[in-house]
């Protein structure tokens, strides 16, 4: 095992360990943890099979094997970024809907409070006139 191979295995192992630690401590949601475990596993497998990657890159005509690895890694990172943006957009839509619901419910609560106050007799035994019906 060469130095490069050993370092690749070490880094991939540390990365996989980090993911396992975060997933175990519930710092990552299960769905995201699963994706990261898959990626960490793939990185470790790639590090294990580093010699085979030389043969693959040679077979498909890539003279410098690390270029192939970086190409794959960059594609993976961009896909992950896109996925995270999708999750973010979905959360923003959720926050927007929640804010709209809060505004609506505030209004309903205020109207109900006004109606309650109007219906509750005061000390003199008369109810306060209800708010004008036109909004």
């Amino acid at each position: 095992m060469g130095v490069v191979h050993a370092i690749s295995l070490l880094v991939a192992g540390i990365f996989l360990g980090q993911i396992m630690l975060l997933a175990g401590r519930h710092r990552l949601r299960d769905r995201h943890a699963f994706i990261w475990v898959m990626i960490g596993g793939a990185a470790f497998a790639a590090a294990l099979g580093l010699p085979a990657l030389n043969a693959i890159s040679e077979a498909i005509g890539v003279a410098y094997m690390p270029s192939l690895v970086f190409l794959g890694a960059i594609y993976l990172i961009l896909t992950l970024l896109m996925y995270q943006t999708m999750v973010l957009s979905s959360h923003q839509d959720g926050i927007r809907t929640m804010a709209q619901e809060i505004a609506y419910l505030r209004r309903v609560v205020e109207m109900n409070q006004n109606e309650l106050e109007a219906a509750t007799p005061n000390a003199s035994g008369t109810a306060r006139p209800a708010e004008a019906s036109r909004s």
Partner: peptide, 22 residues
């Protein structure tokens, strides 16, 4: 004045949709 109070700024689209939802 009858109004809906959005707790955060949603932009014109979000504000209009709030009104349509109402």
């Amino acid at each position: 004045i009858p109004h809906l109070d959005l707790p955060i700024n949603l932009g014109i689209g979000g504000a209009m949709q709030t009104g349509y939802r109402y």
